[in-house]
C-alpha cells in the first residue's frame, strides 16, 4: 500500500515538474535573447499567460477539416505526457520505467509528429503541406542522430532503459566525463535544436513562408488546440533538455527516496535546465538561420558526430 502511494507521488512529481516547468524554460530563452539584443523583453512568466489566454479563446476550424484536425492536439499532448513518464527529471528510476525505453520514446515522438504532419495536410492550405513536408524530411535525418547519440551513452550503462541508464551513470561518476560522451552531447544538442525548431534550423518567431517549418504546420490551429500544441512543444523542449542534463551530467540527481535528496535534485535540475536554456538562447542569438538546403548538412554533422561517439566508445572505451 505504501509503495503505491510513493509511486503515485513520484509520478505526480515527475509530471508536475515537466508540465509546469515547460513554459518557464521558454520564458527564460525569450528573456535571455531579449537581453542579448539590448531589449527588456517580456517577463519570464509570459508563456504561462499566453497559454491561459489561448485556453480561454474559442476554436475556429476550417470547413474542410476532418476529424483528424481536432483529434491531433489531444493525441499530441497524450503522447508527450507518456514520454514525460519515461524520461527521468529529478528522480531515477521512475515508477513506471518498465513501460518503455529510449526506442519507445523515439517512436512516441514520431507518432506525435506523424499526426501533426497529417493535420497540417488536412486543411489543404498551401502552407500546411509545405510545413509538413519540410518537417518530415528533416525528421528523417534527425531521428537516427538522436538514437545513435543516446545509444552511445546507453552502451556505457548496458541498457536502453532511460531510468536505468541515468541511475547507473549517476552512481558511477567516473564514466561521466569521457570523449565519447562529449561527442554524443554535441550531437544531441544539435538534435535538440532541430527537434524543438530553434534558430539554425527553424525560427519559432516568424511566419515567413520561406523559412517556417513547425509554424507552417500549425498555422490553421487556434484557441485551446493551439494551446495544447504549443504546450506539447514546450514539454518536448523540457524532455530533450532533461535528456541532455541527466544523461551527460547526472550530478545531484536523486537515486534514493529522501526529502533531502529530492530537494537537492530539484534545485540541481532547475539550475541545469536554466543553464541549458541560456545556452540555447546564446546559440540562437549568435547564429543566423540556415538556408533550408543547408540544414541537412548540419544534421548530417550531428549524425556523424553521434556515429563517431559510438565508434570512439569501442576505440577509446569508457
Amino acid at each position: 500500500m505504501n509503495d503505491i502511494i510513493t509511486n503515485a507521488l513520484l509520478l505526480i512529481l515527475q509530471l508536475g515538474v515537466t508540465v509546469l516547468m515547460a513554459p518557464f524554460i521558454f520564458g527564460i530563452i525569450k528573456k535571455t535573447k531579449a537581453r542579448i539584443q539590448n531589449r527588456r523583453g517580456p517577463s519570464i512568466f509570459q508563456p504561462y499567460a499566453d497559454l491561459t489566454k489561448l485556453l480561454k479563446k474559442e476554436v475556429v476550424i476550417s470547413e474542410n477539416a476532418s476529424w483528424l484536425f481536432s483529434f491531433t492536439p489531444y493525441l499530441l499532448i497524450a503522447s508527450t505526457l507518456v514520454i514525460v513518464i519515461l524520461v527521468p527529471t529529478v528522480f531515477a528510476p521512475l515508477p513506471f520505467h518498465w513501460i518503455g525505453d529510449i526506442i519507445t520514446v523515439a517512436y512516441l515522438l514520431a507518432l506525435g509528429r506523424f499526426f501533426l504532419a497529417l493535420a497540417g495536410l488536412d486543411t489543404a492550405s498551401g502552407f500546411g503541406g509545405l510545413g509538413s513536408s519540410r518537417e518530415m524530411s528533416i525528421a528523417s535525418i534527425v531521428e537516427p542522430a538522436m538514437m545513435l547519440s543516446i545509444f552511445a551513452v546507453a552502451v556505457t550503462a548496458g541498457s536502453t532503459n532511460l531510468s536505468i541508464v541515468v541511475r547507473s551513470l549517476s552512481t558511477t561518476p567516473a564514466s561521466i566525463f569521457n570523449p565519447s560522451h562529449l561527442l554524443a552531447f554535441v550531437a544531441l544538442f544539435i538534435v535538440t535544436i532541430a527537434e524543438t525548431g530553434r534558430i539554425p534550423v527553424d525560427n519559432p518567431e516568424t511566419h515567413l513562408e520561406l523559412t517556417m517549418i513547425h509554424e507552417a504546420m500549425i498555422l490553421e490551429y487556434s484557441g485551446r488546440y493551439l494551446a495544447f500544441i504549443e504546450w506539447a512543444s514546450q514539454m518536448k523542449m523540457v524532455i530533450f533538455l532533461s535528456l541532455l542534463a541527466n544523461l551527460f551530467f547526472p550530478i545531484g540527481l536523486a537515486t534514493v527516496l529522501s526529502p533531502a535528496a529530492l530537494g537537492v535534485s530539484i534545485v540541481a535540475f532547475v539550475a541545469k535546465m536554466t543553464l541549458l536554456a541560456i545556452g540555447i538562447a546564446l546559440v540562437e542569438s549568435t547564429n543566423a538561420k540556415l538556408r533550408l538546403f543547408r540544414v541537412p548538412d548540419l544534421l548530417m554533422t550531428a549524425f556523424i558526430l553521434s556515429l563517431l561517439s559510438l565508434i570512439l566508445y569501442f576505440i577509446v572505451g569508457a
Binding site: 570523449p179 565519447s180 561527442l183 558526430l305
Partner: peptide, 8 residues
Amino acid sequence: ILATGILV
C-alpha cells in the same frame, strides 16, 4: 579528450 577534440 584532447585527441578526440583534434578528430572533431
